[in-house]
Design a protein around this nucleic acid. Sequence first.
DNA 1: AAGTGGTCTAGACCACCAT
DNA 2: TGGTGGTCTAGACCACTTA
Lengths: 240, 240
Amino acid sequence: MNTIEGGPLYKGVQRALLEQLSNGALKPGQLIPSERQLATEFAVSIGTLRKAIDDLVEQRILIRQQGKGTFVATHDRERLLFYFFHLVPQVGVKSYPLIEFVFFQKALATTEIAQRLQIAVGAPIFHIRNRLSLESDIVSVDDLFLEQSRFATLTAAQFRDRPNTIYNLYQEAFGYTVVKTDERLRAVACAEEHAKLLKVSPSAPVLTIRRSAIDMRGETVEFRISTVNTASYEYFAELL
Amino acid sequence: MNTIEGGPLYKGVQRALLEQLSNGALKPGQLIPSERQLATEFAVSIGTLRKAIDDLVEQRILIRQQGKGTFVATHDRERLLFYFFHLVPQVGVKSYPLIEFVFFQKALATTEIAQRLQIAVGAPIFHIRNRLSLESDIVSVDDLFLEQSRFATLTAAQFRDRPNTIYNLYQEAFGYTVVKTDERLRAVACAEEHAKLLKVSPSAPVLTIRRSAIDMRGETVEFRISTVNTASYEYFAELL
DNA sequence: AAGTGGTCTAGACCACCAT
DNA sequence: TGGTGGTCTAGACCACTTA
């Protein structure tokens, strides 16, 4: 096979599987071969094969289902809500956000955006703005920044009336599976432009979330700044 | 032994170990018996014993060191900084906060505090206030709330000039090991009382962090509200 | 009934650390 | 050298799903 030595056997198997996942040989939603099959393919014991898969399951790249098989994870609404969406009501239960499209435009990377997307300052980017509501309260304005060369065929239409999540779009149309995010939060006085959309008074205190979305290869695929009105909602994180 | 059936064998072993950890039979910093010893004690195979320990290591309750043994984790400065302290400079690298003691007083639980600490409204609590600085900038005012009955012998002196972290105090003096935190963040206008301590103008936008610190038994040991000036620092979280 | 993942065994050998 | 955790094997059997 193709295990590329240098460390533990199961790490080699893991790399081989990750390669097949990131080059599209194994696609989201697909059933992968059974553990017994993979074990004989890679010529390792079933225990070693399971150990290789364990880590991928923990990172939620693969999903095991007893009796059915092991599947490549997809970015469905559930996954978004539970793992990537951290705004919850101060009282009550979490729900799905309603997304309103505001605009889609081409722009050039500022210093901050360039740094986060690991591209050159002034490189061409897409700038998409959405507005999010929860239970009919306007909660957030999201500004998304994408490298144009990575998402060359992207159009505004793909952001209007999406049935699925945006990460799902990246996954299905461009082959980028977001597996991890970094988030940096600050409290600031709201800019006028955002205040209008959020329907708050200018310079009201708002929360900004700067999120880098990172794919299986470790590359930052999207940088996003969310501007959040935390009057009735708040940011929630469970740590460790 | 004492494995208490009802599910997988390794879960029973895990429960037995957790019991020994939370009742003090195994103390922080201590070397626990070797895997081979524990396997024979619990009358399970070495593989099963390792699987039991795997989860505890992942939760950072135990620390494995190849060639040396497995140890009960302690709340040292490293652990605090890397896992429980989320304020970082907007540019530059993370560092240890300087903690200034402000006051220690007795109080009664408000609705919010009671709810978070899972005690009755009006129950007696301790309220401790500290001020945190990073690189000589004042960054945060922390208000800590503890149930008096849980920390009956606590004194102000224990908060003045501490060499170690506060979670270390809970662990060493009261036997509570914090293994997980929940955090809820909002942007608000700063209250006057906090504005003075933070040296910001009243009603400046500040970040509030409401943190519940949860121990091995799943109980909330401390509720804390941090009021943070995010002019030069920000809250950082790595997710998934 | 056949196929899948989940648990468990009873070892072997390797890598690392202390003495 | 002897003890520790880390990797790996070649199975067996259980629990769950689907046909």
